[in-house]
Design a protein around this nucleic acid. Structure first.
Length: 529
RNA sequence: GCGCCUGUAGCUCAGGGGAUAGAGCGUGCGCCUCCGGAGCGCAAGGCCGUAGGUUCGAUUCCUACCAGGCGCACCA
């Protein structure tokens, strides 16, 4: 783990804060709204006013005069008690040097506390192809997993196939009915793909429903894996719910919660007393007919996850499943685990529109946009970018026309274009650069760009901690903007040797960071477009 | 009724206690003798849903209310 370049500025400031009696108070450097105020600023003096019983501006003076660092050119008190800092050219050169030295590792390994994290995402019944709505789960979950890994956590990605239960029986029955030319059962699956799948299996229409179910599920599992791979959503393990029943895990989990005293019997069923553990109501674990509910399976799965040695199990679920939070946490407690080890992330729905008209609907009724179709229309990069650029707890609208456009209206190209431009400059350079020249002093556009590069490690750490990969997209967009401005204002090739060399180094450093950032959300950083 | 999420520019949305609230798209006006114009600059456009509270300081945290989305099975 490495301190970010911004923290290298904060260090001397914190030392000064400690000297004036603010031991342990963080500098928390921020960019002043007005660049005329300086490069970074700390509001620590304002927070110290009360404990130190002194005027904030006075404290700021004390801090400012004690700051001593080769990377800080000046420290000035301003406003109610801010200390405004100006970085030295040496710091800017240092930042570029660090990015180049750390290469694609730059920005990574910043997790405050590396953990073993298991992340389960997408997951669902293998009753049909992956839909475009589910794509948000895949884009978000996969980006989170990439972020965790990059931040320094040990990550396992898992897909949980709900291949047991009534939905699967309905799916099998629907396939069989279609093959026999009959109407699908009530509540059955009516999507157009059902007929294709039924035909593709080449099974005797009169084969037992069980066989239709098993063969259909196997085919859908393969189809789901193929589509997700195409979408660059990777998994280390494909877990089958059925296995939990077959190896006795479900029975074992039921015994465990019985043993901890969090169950009771009523109306011939076994209930989990979840209402006392934070859930809104009690839940049936074993039906009066003796069969376990899906909750029993969920409990067994929690045991499976946590007993495999993960510190935390992250679940990525759609907003229609938000009721799971209370249920799963209650289950974890009943099983004797710390509920904080179950980390449930809920993402809101995607409204897919085309020309202002909604195109998404339920899978069971058919007329649904599938992920493969979405990718055919707008491409993988645009789909990943569009689905992860906004906070996961924000309902989003995905306009097919906008994202399919091969022009400047399409936001994904803005970032990619910056990377391609950099690649073009590096291609055209006549000699390899070797870091910024020793006496180089950056111009304003360069200052701005380097600051962005310096802040990347913190952005990564925060994005991972807050489970918000959209911050990476926002960062990539900001950095791209900063580069485009630099490109316009500062010519690279053909300038004086020291300037050219330094700017080439800055270009290469920016290209590296852009590629890393886009890679974290599964978007490619092309050298040519 | 209860619970979760959300109300910020014309539209889609960033902003996880700090100074004059931002971006993309859209609108208007400019910028290619030079590294890729999928770009850059300038301008217009905001009671940050409403009302209270905490704080030196609130778009940010808390409460209530209003509005929208999603849920509240012995289905998964």
């Amino acid at each position: 783990m490495s301190r970010s370049a911004v923290q290298e500025l904060a260090g001397p400031v914190e030392a000064a804060i400690a000297e004036v009696g603010g031991d342990g108070v963080q500098a928390r450097l921020e960019r002043p709204a007005d660049p005329a105020h300086g490069d970074y600023a700390t509001a620590a003096a304002l927070q110290l006013a009360k404990p130190l019983r002194a005027a904030p501006r006075q404290i700021a003076e004390w801090i400012a005069e004690r700051i001593d660092s080769p990377f800080i050119a000046s420290a000035q008190v301003a406003g109610p008690g801010f200390v405004n800092l100006r970085a030295t050219p040496a710091w800017y050169r240092h930042v570029i040097g660090r990015v180049l030295a750390e290469d694609r590792r730059y920005g990574g390994g910043a997790a405050a506390r590396p953990q073993k994290i298991q992340i389960e995402y997408v997951s669902g019944n293998p009753t049909g192809p992956v839909t475009a709505s589910t794509a948000r789960n895949a884009a978000y979950g996969d980006s989170l997993a990439r972020l965790f890994e990059f931040a320094g956590h040990d990550v396992q990605r898992e897909y949980y196939f709900n291949d047991a239960g009534r939905q699967m029986d309905l799916f099998g029955a629907s396939l069989r009915a279609r093959a026999r030319g009959e109407d699908v059962p009530e509540d059955g699956y009516r999507g157009a793909y059902i007929e294709d799948v039924a035909r593709g299996l080449g099974l005797d229409p009169d084969a037992p429903a069980d066989e239709w179910r098993a063969r259909g599920a196997a085919a859908m599992v393969e189809d789901i894996k193929r589509t997700l791979t195409r979408f660059r959503a990777g998994f280390d393990r494909w877990f089958l719910e059925r296995s939990l029943y077959e190896d006795g895990s479900v029975a074992g989990a039921i015994e465990t919660v019985r043993g901890t005293g969090h169950t009771y019997e009523k109306d011939g069923a076994l209930w989990l007393r979840s209402s006392e553990l934070g859930d809104d109501k009690d839940r049936v674990l074993v039906r009066s007919d003796g069969t376990p509910t899906y909750i029993a399976g969920d409990l067994a799965y929690i045991v499976s996850k946590l007993e495999r040695g993960f510190d935390v199990a992250v679940y990525v679920l759609g907003s229609d499943h938000h009721g799971y939070i209370g249920r799963l946490k209650a289950g974890a407690i009943a099983l004797g685990y710390d509920p904080d080890r179950v980390d449930i992330q809920i993402y809101q729905f995607v409204k897919i529109v085309e020309g202002g008209k909604a195109v998404s609907a339920s899978k069971r009724r058919g007329a649904v946009l599938m992920l493969d179709e979405l990718l055919d229309v707008i491409g993988i990069d645009a789909a990943r970018y569009a689905l992860v650029q906004r906070s996961h707890d924000q309902v989003i609208e995905l306009d097919l026309e906008l994202w399919a456009a091969q022009n400047a209206e399409n936001p994904v190209y803005y970032c990619q274009y910056a990377h391609a431009r950099i690649a073009a400059i590096l291609r055209n350079a006549e000699r390899a650069e070797d870091g910024p020249a020793p006496g180089w002093t950056p111009e304003p556009a360069e200052v701005e760009l380097v600051k962005h590069l310096a802040e990347f490690p913190e952005v990564v750490a925060e994005a991972a901690e807050w489970r918000g990969p959209h911050r990476i997209v926002a960062y990539a967009q900001d950095t791209a903007k900063s580069f485009h401005q630099f490109y316009k204002q500062c010519r690279v090739l053909g300038e004086a040797p020291d300037v050219e060399r330094s700017r080439l180094a800055l270009c290469r450093a920016t290209g590296l960071v852009m590629a890393t950032a886009l890679g974290l959300v599964g978007v490619e950083a092309p050298d040519r477009m």
